[in-house]
């Protein structure tokens, strides 16, 4: 048996030496780039003891930052849920002029630097912009306030849900919808009872990724936030400030929250992929 293994080698395989070497390279790379920093975050956070760790969360500015981050995510994620489902629905189920262009537009936030997306909003709604004076006269503040942060976050996280749903819906085609319509269902009933349940796991997956990014977004939010402590600082911005003030323990303490968010997201994502992988990725037919 062992002879057979050595004599007949898998045509697509590599020699054992190469396999071990390549695996080692991959593991070493992962350790340096991913695992080590993660450990560092938790190590630094607890270096001055658990008391110092929990103290970081007592600070009013920290509490405000956490609250703001949750608020922004609570607005941005549902908005993108609606936008994403609407865009995916339109693209996957209907044919219209400019469809390819729309798909490209959806990808824009992925390909553009977040700082630029932030700047765009400053140029649009800032004090120096054309709209600035009008907004100011109405007492509406967008830049350096919650609306601006939400806008920037929505922009940056828009593709996550749409991108997840489009291939899934395209793969499923319009057969189920046509069946529902032929049975007398209205368009809304068809969407609610047929289309949405068909993509529910993919949707959850998209929401998860969208939420993780919404809470962790730094670049775009940094530009529009104005860094008003306790008012317009989200968690990532607050961490940066603490770090720049050499308050490492507090900075890393808050950072553990984001790291935990990442780990939970990863765990849920893996779970979803394991259980409903065939309904998330394209390729499911009954």
């Amino acid at each position: 048996m062992s002879e057979a293994v050595s004599r007949y080698r898998d045509p697509a395989g590599e020699s054992p030496t190469w396999r071990v070497l390549l695996t080692l390279v991959a593991v070493a790379f992962l350790a340096i780039v991913v695992i080590l920093p993660l450990i560092t975050v938790f190590y630094e956070a607890f270096r001055k003891g658990a008391a110092a760790f929990f103290e970081a969360f007592q600070e009013p500015d920290a509490i405000a930052a956490i609250r703001l981050t949750l608020t922004v995510a609570a607005i941005a994620v549902p908005l993108n849920l609606v936008f994403g489902v609407a865009a995916a629905w339109a693209i996957a189920k209907f044919d219209f002029r400019g469809k390819t262009f729309l798909v490209t537009l959806i990808d824009l936030p992925f390909s553009i630097s977040p700082v630029i997306s932030g700047l765009v909003y400053v140029l649009l709604f800032g004090a120096q912009s054309y709209l600035g004076p009008i907004l100011k006269s109405q007492g509406i503040q967008i830049i350096f306030a919650l609306p601006g942060i939400v806008l920037a976050t929505v922009f940056v996280t828009f593709p996550f849900i749409a991108r997840e749903l489009i291939p899934l819906m395209q793969e499923q085609g319009t057969g189920d919808e046509e069946a529902a319509l032929s049975l007398g269902a209205t368009g809304w009933q068809t969407f609610w009872y047929v289309t949405l349940p068909n993509v529910k796991w993919g949707l959850l997956y998209g929401v998860l990724l969208c939420n993780a990014r919404a809470m962790g977004e730094f670049g775009a939010v940094s530009v529009v936030s104005g860094h008003v402590r306790g008012l317009t600082e989200t968690m990532p911005l607050h961490i940066e400030i603490l770090y720049n003030e050499y308050n490492f323990a507090a900075a890393f303490a808050i950072a553990t929250l984001l790291a935990l968010l990442a780990l939970v997201t990863l765990a849920l994502k893996t779970l979803l992929e394991l259980r409903y992988g065939d309904e998330i990725a394209a390729g499911r037919k009954h």
């Binding site: 057969g175 069946a179 529902a180 032929s182 007398g184 269902a185 209205t186 349940p197 009954h286």
Partner: peptide, 25 residues
């Protein structure tokens, strides 16, 4: 009554729910 080539049964519904769909809506 339309029967589709690949049946287009609603995969998240049971057989009974599939058949009842046209009446429930």
């Amino acid at each position: 009554g339309f029967v589709f080539q690949h049946y287009a049964l609603f995969r998240h519904m049971t057989v009974a729910e599939n058949i009842a769909f046209g009446l429930k809506v």
